[in-house]
Simulated scan of single mutants.
Amino acid sequence: MNVDCQDKVWTLTLNRPDKRNALSAELVEALIAAVQAAEQAQADLLILRGEGRNFSAGFDFSDYEQQSEGDLVLRFIRIETLLQLLAHTPCATLALAHGQNFGAGVDLIAVCRQRVASADARFRMPGLQFGLALGTGRLAALIGGQQAHQLLAGSQVFDAAKAEQLGFIEGIQEPDTWPAVIEQAQQTAGLLDATSRAYLHQLTGCPQQVDRDMAALVRSASAPGIKQRIAAFRQAATS
């Protein structure tokens, strides 16, 4: 991951283009550390974006067969930990998405308070197909329970136009216009100090979801047979 810090603006760029920026354990820990460092530095704006063809393909399954079920559960817990840090950071947050995005990668976009995507962006959250309740509550809070239910029940792919219609993203902007998007976000973030932003985020967010989301994630991930469920899901996806 690349971290760029300029004028109280921190840009975190997922930089595993050969893996479509899938979230390995190491990348998740690097993101957690970077978010904490940005808070300590009292950054105004935290930007998430991806290098290469897409923002993020979600959980990195490449070595899951060699890991214990306990290791896999911990990895999912650490992703939820990252999402909660981003949900409650006093920094303003901006996701810049493009390409094909899946699962936990979509959760990373959803948790940011401002979300912009290019016209080629696609999104899919298939976690419930292998019994994982990650990001469900946040998506429902963002786009409404009924619309979230429809998307997740069928593990539907939705494009940028549909995402904008649902309110999942706030606008469709091509990457060559992103510097202007960032400049505007920086100006808006700078209108409030960190304490005021913290109050704003606390009072307009859903703090009651913190324990609920973590509890749902832990219960779903720790149910026996997570490896078998992942294997069945991946086999069905390739058949």
Rank of each mutant, 00 (worst) to 15 (best):
S155D: 10
Q42T: 09
Q6P: 04
E183P: 00
E174K: 03
S220G: 02
K8H: 13
E39T: 11
L27G: 05
S24L: 05
L82S: 01
A30Q: 12
Q84N: 10
L31V: 03
E65S: 12
Q114E: 14
C206A: 15
L200G: 01
L108S: 00
S24K: 01
A163T: 03
A30P: 01
A57F: 10
L191R: 14
V116Y: 07
Q165V: 02
D60Y: 02
Q173G: 01
A121R: 00
D211A: 13
A153G: 02
D4W: 04
Q67L: 15
S155H: 09
A161S: 02
I32V: 15
Q156W: 07
H88E: 10
L14Q: 06
G103C: 15
K162P: 03
S155E: 00
S220H: 02
D63C: 09
G167R: 02
G205C: 03
Q165N: 09
E164V: 08
D159N: 14
K8V: 03
L46C: 04
Q186W: 05
T93W: 00
R113D: 02
I226G: 06
A140T: 08
G58N: 00
V157S: 08
I226R: 05
Q100N: 12
M1I: 11
G145H: 15
L23A: 03
D213F: 08
R197A: 00
A57H: 06
Y199M: 09
P90G: 03
P175T: 04
A141H: 11
N15Q: 07
L45H: 07
L96T: 08
A194I: 08
F61T: 07
A231R: 14
L108Q: 02
R16D: 12
I32M: 06
A160C: 09
G154R: 15
A43L: 12
A163K: 04
E39Y: 05
L46G: 03
W178K: 06
P179A: 03
L132E: 08
L192D: 06
A25W: 09
A97T: 13
S155G: 15
A185I: 04
Q147Y: 03
Q84P: 01
Q165I: 09
R229C: 13
L45G: 11
R16V: 02
D60I: 06
L14I: 03
Q67K: 15
N2M: 08
A161G: 01
A161Y: 02
P126A: 10
S118V: 07
I47Y: 10
T11H: 01
R124C: 14
A121K: 10
R212Q: 12
P207D: 00
F102P: 01
A34F: 03
T136Y: 13
W178Y: 14
A38R: 00
M214K: 13
E29N: 15
L83C: 13
M214E: 09
H201Y: 15
N21P: 06
I143M: 09
Q208K: 11
G137M: 04
A22C: 09
I109L: 15
L192V: 05
L152P: 04
R78N: 14
D7M: 09
A153Q: 13
E26Y: 04
E174D: 10
F158P: 07
S239K: 12
M214P: 00
F158Q: 11
R197T: 01
F158T: 12
T11W: 03
H88F: 09
A104E: 13
Q84T: 13
L23K: 00
R78E: 11
S239H: 11
V218E: 05
I172Y: 05
Q147A: 14
F55S: 08
D4R: 12
